[in-house]
Nucleic acid binder design. Structure first.
Lengths: 139, 139
DNA sequence: TCGTTAATTTGAATGATTCAGGTTTAGGCC
DNA sequence: GGCCTAAACCTGAATCATTCAAATTAACGA
C-alpha cells in the first residue's frame, strides 16, 4: 500500500511533509528526529522541527511507525512494524541493528509470569559492540 | 555481604550517603533519583541531589546497582543484580515489576543472529497495564 | 467554494541529567 | 594520632530532547 493510503486509513491528513517523513524513515536506518528533519528538508524544503516531532508522534500513534528509545539515546524511528523484532545497540557508536525474534510470529509477549499485567508489547534491546567498533583482534 | 564491604571491594569510599543510598534502593521498589534522594535525606539528613546522581552513577558503574530506563520515564534503580531478570512496566502508572527470565541462568544474551555484535547485556521490557490500573471487568 | 478542524509555525517552557569549580573528607601512610 | 591526596560532595549553571501554547495555514468533506 502507498503511504498516502496508509495515512488516510489511519484518519490522518495527507501532507507533503508526512509523505516525506515516511519515505525518509523507510529509506533510513533507525533515524532520530534530527536525521528525519534533515531528510525531510532535503525532499520538500523548509519544515519546522516541531512539525517533525508532531508528525512522528501522530504516525507512531497510528501504528505507521515504530519507535525505539535505547537508554541514554534520543528516540529512533523505523517503518518495520508488526513483527515485534528486536534491536542490537552498539555501546560505542549507538548504531541500531534489527534482529528477528526467536520465539515466533507473535513473539515475546508472554513473560514467565505476567504478575497480572495485560501485556501488549515487548521491548527487547541487546547491548554490545558492533563489528565496526570492535578492536581488530576480536573480529 | 555488607554494603560497606561491597563498596570497598569496588574501590569506592564508604560514606554515610552511599550506605543510605544502598539501603534506600534495597528497601524501595525500582526507585527513581528523586525517590532515592528523599529516602536518603530521611536517613542521614541533608544530601544534595547531585551527590545522589553521582553516587548512583558510581554504584551502577561498579555493578552494585542495576539501572533501568523505560522509554519516557526517568531512570530507576534496584539492588537485584546479576540475574538479568526482566521488567513489566505499567503504561498508566509507570509501576515497574520484576519478572524472572525464561531462558535460564545466564539468560537472554543470545539474539537469533548477533550480526557480529559482542553482546554483553539484554534489556527486556514488557509493556502493559498493571492489575491496579486495569478496569474492574477485565480482572 | 466554503467551513471546520487538523496540521504547521514560531517561541517559550520543562525536566532529567550532566558539567564545572571550589570545598570537604575518607582512608592510606608516616 | 596527624598529614596528604584523590575521591566525594556542594552550589550553581548548562545541556538537550521533548513538550506546551497560541496564532496561522491548509486539507478535505459538504
Amino acid at each position: 500500500m502507498e503511504d498516502e493510503d496508509r495515512l488516510r486509513q489511519a484518519g490522518l491528513r495527507v501532507t507533503a511533509a508526512r509523505l516525506a517523513i515516511m519515505r525518509t524513515v523507510r529509506e533510513g536506518d533507525h533515524l532520530d528526529v534530527d536525521a528525519v528533519h534533515h531528510g525531510v528538508r532535503g525532499r520538500v524544503g523548509q519544515v519546522s522541527l516541531q512539525a517533525v516531532y508532531d508528525s512522528l508522534r501522530a504516525l507512531h500513534g497510528a501504528g505507521l511507525l515504530r519507535r525505539t528509545e535505547p537508554a541514554g539515546s534520543p528516540a529512533r524511528y523505523e517503518t518495520r512494524i508488526g513483527d515485534n523484532h528486536h534491536h542490537l545497540v552498539c555501546r560505542r557508536c549507538g548504531k541500531v541493528t534489527d534482529v528477528d525474534c526467536a520465539v515466533g510470529h507473535a513473539p515475546c509477549l508472554d513473560p514467565v509470569s505476567d504478575a497480572g499485567y495485560l501485556v501488549d508489547e515487548a521491548d527487547v534491546i541487546f547491548w554490545g559492540v558492533c563489528p565496526g567498533c570492535r578492536p581488530e583482534d576480536t573480529r
